[in-house]
Every structure is written in C-alpha cells, then in structure tokens.
C-alpha cells in the first residue's frame, strides 16, 4: 500500500470542499487533538487487510461538519449526528484511496468511536496527514499493513 502525503492531501481537500463547502488546509507539523472522534475504514483484497484509514478530529470539527451536512445550527448538532458525519467522511476518504489501489480491493464498513485518541492497528508503514478546517485541526492516517 503506497499512497503518499500528496495523494491524501488532494483527496481530503476535495472531500472537504465538495461535501462541506469549506477548505481543509494541510499543515506540516503534527497538531494535538484531544478527546476527539475517530472514524476508520479498512481496505482489503481477497480477504486480507491491506490497510486502514483513520480520521481523527475534535468534537468541534465533527460538529461543524455535521451542522453543514444536516443543515443544523451548531448548537443543535447531537453526538449521533457528529458520529454519522465522521463515518461518511472516512467512507469517502477511504473510497477515494481505494480507487488508487488494486481494482479488486474492497472497502469495509466504517466504524466510529467517540472519545479518546487515535489508537491505530499494527502498521507496516504509515502516512500521517494533518489539516486545519472549520472547528479546528484534524488528522488523517493511512496505516498500511502489507
């Protein structure tokens, strides 16, 4: 699984601009994201997991995105709205990464965990990307397992 920072940046910028209508700006240095929301989705081929993509963001980032997706005032966004939104965002990011991989690779069902930090599976290689957008910073990590 050899997807680099440039590909991840382009995918994330496109997902944010098209789906949410505002910019996700890549930043070079790691940013602290405390007590956030983490979405992840696996990409497999012939039953073997090739890798997992993570989206880790603050609750503020998740809520800002959910407010756009569900056309709600920020105050009216609930925890489930924020979780659904992060699940859909990681689904799109994962799907776009998958499209750069083998034709017969498959995208698994996304999962979302509310609270805590990002605890990735055992990775053979990692591509870690940080962004700043409406609501604050967020992180997208591609954890390659082969």
């Amino acid at each position: 699984m050899h997807i680099g920072l440039a590909e991840i940046n382009a995918i994330v910028e496109n997902v944010w601009a098209s789906t949410l209508g505002y910019e996700a700006i890549p930043v070079d240095d790691p940013l602290e994201i405390a007590d956030g929301v983490t979405g992840s989705v696996g990409i497999s081929e012939a039953g073997a997991l090739l890798g997992r993509v993570y989206l880790h963001c603050s609750r503020e980032v998740a809520s800002s995105a959910a407010a756009v997706m569900f056309r709600l005032d920020l105050d009216a966004v609930g925890e489930q709205d924020a979780a659904d939104t992060v699940g859909e965002l990681i689904n799109m990011i994962g799907g776009n990464i998958k499209s750069l991989l083998a034709e017969n690779s498959q995208l698994e069902i996304p999962t979302v965990v509310i609270g805590g930090g990002l605890v990735p599976d055992a990775c053979v290689n990692v591509c870690d990307a940080y962004f700043v957008a409406e609501g604050g910073p967020f992180r997208v990590m591609l954890c390659g397992m082969q």
Binding site: V15, S18, T19, M92, G94, N96, K98, S99, E103, L107
Partner: peptide, 24 residues
Amino acid sequence: TTEASPEMRELAEKNGAAFLITKP
C-alpha cells in the same frame, strides 16, 4: 457511491442504470 471500479460501472450499465456518480 463511494466506490466506482470499471467492473461496477459495467454492472450498473448492464443492469439498466443511467449513471454512476462518485462521492464526493
């Protein structure tokens, strides 16, 4: 849909879909 492999496009067209738009 999020995924749009050539195989999926072919299946969609073969079964009568008018279009396949990828997310985002």
